[in-house]
Amino acid sequence: MTQHNSLRSDLLPAAVRGFLAAHVVRDADAASSFFAEDAVAVDQGESFRGREQIHAFLRDAGSEFEYTTERIGTTRIDDGHWVVTLRLEGTFPGGVAELDYRFTIRRDAVAELVIANHGS
């Protein structure tokens, strides 16, 4: 069972809030703008380095499916590390996924994002 966290969105760093707002509406241009130039994003073990590769990843990931996204949890590890759990429901295989978006923030930008199955 998923534990819902009551941490308010406005307590997230601005880069995380901005990324999530853009990501939910699938605006890859805006979402990628919250990353540092030398950032790394990792999804399903595949790494994307630099804002240009991250932009392409965000633009293409899941584009063949229809789905909704709901934030169901937020954990602050420390000032530079946050985990946001999102629940996706849609037309992809399995129909439901809970994913942890693990953010590392450096100088008000996302330096690293690791996307993994919730709890893994």
Results as ranks from 00 to 15, higher is better:
67 Y>E: 09
71 R>C: 10
61 A>E: 14
27 D>T: 06
26 R>S: 05
87 R>M: 08
61 A>R: 08
112 E>T: 02
111 A>E: 14
88 L>V: 06
109 A>E: 15
96 V>R: 14
48 F>M: 05
33 S>M: 07
44 Q>V: 02
39 A>L: 06
58 L>P: 07
92 F>C: 06
85 T>A: 15
40 V>W: 02
78 D>S: 14
111 A>M: 03
94 G>C: 08
85 T>W: 14
67 Y>I: 04
57 F>E: 09
87 R>Q: 11
28 A>C: 08
41 A>S: 03
107 R>Y: 02
108 D>W: 00
80 G>H: 15
97 A>T: 01
57 F>W: 15
54 I>F: 03
75 T>L: 15
61 A>L: 10
49 R>Y: 03
86 L>R: 10
90 G>F: 04
102 R>N: 11
43 D>R: 00
99 L>A: 06
103 F>V: 01
87 R>E: 08
105 I>S: 12
35 F>S: 01
41 A>E: 05
32 S>F: 11
40 V>A: 08
111 A>D: 10
80 G>I: 01
45 G>E: 05
78 D>H: 06
90 G>A: 05
68 T>F: 05
110 V>H: 06
95 G>D: 05
45 G>V: 03
111 A>T: 02
77 I>D: 15
42 V>F: 00
28 A>T: 11
51 R>E: 07
95 G>I: 05
34 F>V: 03
101 Y>S: 02
44 Q>L: 07
57 F>L: 14
78 D>A: 03
29 D>A: 13
78 D>R: 06
102 R>H: 13
63 S>K: 12
50 G>Y: 01
91 T>H: 13
38 D>T: 14
69 T>W: 12
84 V>A: 13
56 A>M: 04
105 I>F: 12
81 H>I: 05
94 G>I: 04
72 I>Q: 12
39 A>Y: 00
86 L>K: 09
106 R>S: 10
61 A>S: 11
59 R>E: 14
88 L>H: 12
61 A>M: 13
26 R>Q: 10
82 W>M: 09
52 E>T: 04
43 D>A: 06
115 I>D: 04
40 V>M: 12
29 D>M: 09
29 D>S: 09
81 H>Y: 12
88 L>W: 14
47 S>I: 00
103 F>A: 08
96 V>P: 05
89 E>K: 11
